[in-house]
Design a protein around this nucleic acid. Structure first.
Length: 98
DNA sequence: AGTGTGACAATAA
DNA sequence: CTTATTGCCACAC
């Protein structure tokens, strides 16, 4: 998750794969929910469809959206435009899929 | 042992 | 392109 550079976003499933746990996307969510996530770029983690995982009326939603916008990420109606969680983090970080 | 829940994903319409 | 179903894993009751 820390490998995600500012201005980029990744999906829960991708992060799980990076951790060597394919199919454990929900586990990542569980972690962030319980963990103090204060030292993690949790705001760069989105759903696979580029949607923010929080409900639009939730304060967390506003925070994540704001943080993303602060990094230059285009957020519209709770959705990220331009890069909706690529298939692999390599493609996001390195730009050429490994 | 069975049922329900959650910061999800892949597929079908 | 977006919304709706189905499948998934780990945990709590």
């Amino acid at each position: 998750m820390r490998a995600i550079p500012p201005g980029r976003v990744a999906g829960y499933g991708e992060v799980a794969r990076r951790a060597g746990l394919p199919g454990r996307a929900r586990m990542v969510a569980r972690l962030l929910s319980g963990n103090g996530d204060r030292d993690l770029p949790w705001h760069r983690v989105l759903r696979s469809d580029g949607r923010i995982a929080f409900p639009p009326d939730s304060p967390e939603f506003a925070e994540q959206s704001q943080r993303l916008r602060a990094e230059g990420v285009r957020v519209e109606n709770g959705r990220v435009r331009g890069q909706a969680a690529a298939a692999t983090l390599d493609e996001q970080v390195w730009g050429f899929g490994g």
